[in-house]
Amino acid sequence: MSNGIPGFAYHRVPVADGVALNTAVAGTGPAIVLLHGFPQTHLMWRHVAADLAADHTVICPDLRGYGASDKPAETGPDTYSKRTMAADVVALARAFGHERFALAGHDRGALVAFRAGLDHPAAVTHLAGLDVLPTLDMWDVMHGVSAAVGWHLYLMAQPPGLPEKMIAADPDAFFGAFLDQWIKNPAAIPAETRAVYLSACREAIPSIVADYRASAGIDVAHDTDDRARGNRLRMPVTVIQQDWGAALGYDATALWQAWTDDLHHHTTTAGHFMAEEAPAEIIRHLRDLLTR
């Protein structure tokens, strides 16, 4: 397999000063933007995107700092804040002529989607998040020995320098560990796709760390401010997660309900990489969302 989605056209789309996103596009009709997670690229959506393109305009970018998109140097906390990355997404959709669009994200992409829904409610018509909690809630539920599952969050939250050096010492071992540990069906990410992900991550260590560092700082501040102001997601929301709440001792549905009045929350038996492990299930949930 190449590093592209068959049948999709590829574009480099400027979305901010000095930042262009590598983007795959196919289909016609209402737009849906699909945002990938860690440690992946837009290729993780290959099965879901192909199905949705039958009756939607499907836009699949590499996030800033990932894949073949631009990777600006971290000049401050805003460079990789989810607010900045959400603005990228809105600008991207507009570049293709869509002022309003549905938005689905996995993992890191789901955090960007969440922020886009809060910051740009007039643009985001429907919102889906796969296997993530909002940043503020994520940190709140991580405590005691259960926090060991998120060890990488603490590593990449450290000031610039040490995390990047440690990861660069053996990037394939670092990034590959997540591909191995977070999957229930290893065949869902074949060797050639795994190679694409690892190659992309090797080229993006500083920007990936900067993305995570933002989630331990400025992203928390933005979520805290929204919670204090009562800002909530106004569009229909679907969340699909592994049953982390049962494992770590929290009520995932209740945490999400604090952010929206129109929530469909689902648990899955698939692993973290559910769009690749259980694409039919994810397609079904997304299509149900798009009818709400």
Rank of each mutant, 00 (worst) to 15 (best):
P61I: 03
P30V: 13
F174N: 11
L155S: 03
T238Y: 12
A16E: 01
I282F: 10
V15T: 03
A31I: 02
A87H: 15
E277P: 04
Y154M: 13
T224Y: 14
A26L: 02
A275C: 11
A246S: 15
G144Y: 03
N231D: 14
I218W: 00
G249L: 08
V239R: 09
K184R: 15
A258S: 14
P236G: 06
P190H: 10
H56A: 04
V19G: 10
W45Q: 04
Q257I: 04
V58P: 01
T75M: 12
P236C: 06
L153V: 07
G67C: 08
P61F: 02
D70G: 10
T28D: 15
A128R: 07
Y80L: 01
A26T: 05
F178A: 12
V25L: 04
R83L: 13
D119P: 02
I167E: 02
D55T: 04
A188R: 04
A214K: 00
W151R: 09
G129P: 05
D78H: 09
P39M: 02
L111V: 11
S207H: 09
H143Y: 11
A91N: 12
T238H: 14
F178T: 09
T23D: 07
C60L: 07
A54W: 08
P6A: 09
P77A: 05
V89D: 01
L127H: 00
R202G: 12
A210W: 09
A122F: 06
I59N: 02
G18L: 02
N231Q: 15
L111E: 00
P163D: 14
W139S: 01
T238F: 08
R229L: 06
C60F: 08
I218S: 00
G161F: 05
R234T: 15
D243H: 03
G176I: 11
M274Y: 01
T267N: 05
D137Q: 06
A68Y: 06
C201V: 03
T193A: 12
A102P: 05
D243M: 08
R287C: 04
G7P: 07
L179F: 05
T269I: 13
L103A: 11
T224I: 11
D119F: 06
D170P: 07
R202E: 13
N185I: 14
